[in-house]
């Protein structure tokens, strides 16, 4: 189970991720996108999912039992090659439903002081 005192806390990342042209092009190729000047709309997940797992690894969340329930993106400006994005993750809520733990995590990606994108993931930890 998640530590209750962790709800509402923000875990700031320490190391920013450099977005390479190769990373954008590889992601675009998978979905058949020919425009590689900006990242496809869901590209942010490739940074936030990995980063939030690292940031929240001591939260008591059992990542081996996690199923992705839903996902939301808010994109303030498109991600482009050369961005160095720092991820901070906040556990916004946690509740138990039918024995499963439902955890909502928001991750913000900043380039310096600029908020580039926010992602919200609902994670279902199966009982």
């Amino acid at each position: 189970m998640l530590n209750a005192e962790i709800i509402g806390r923000t875990f700031p990342g320490a190391t920013p991720t450099l977005v390479t042209q190769e990373a954008i092009s590889t992601f675009a190729a998978v979905v058949g996108e020919s425009n590689t000047q900006v990242a496809p709309p869901t590209f942010a997940i490739s940074i936030t999912l990995d980063q939030s797992q690292k940031l929240l690894q001591d939260s008591g969340l059992d990542w081996t039992r996690v199923v992705h329930g839903d996902q939301r993106f808010e994109i303030f400006r498109p991600i482009v090659a050369g961005d160095t994005l720092l991820c901070s993750s906040t556990i916004e809520s946690a509740r138990v439903m039918a024995g499963n733990e439902i955890v909502s995590v928001r991750s913000d990606l900043h380039f310096g002081a600029e908020l580039v994108a926010s992602t919200w993931s609902t994670l279902v930890v199966r009982a």
Partner: peptide, 18 residues
């Protein structure tokens, strides 16, 4: 997301949820 990008380009996508 690709379906949405095809409407007005990837750079036009502001919010997306499912």
């Amino acid at each position: 997301g690709k379906y949405i990008s095809d409407i007005a380009g990837s750079a036009a996508v502001k919010e997306f949820s499912a």
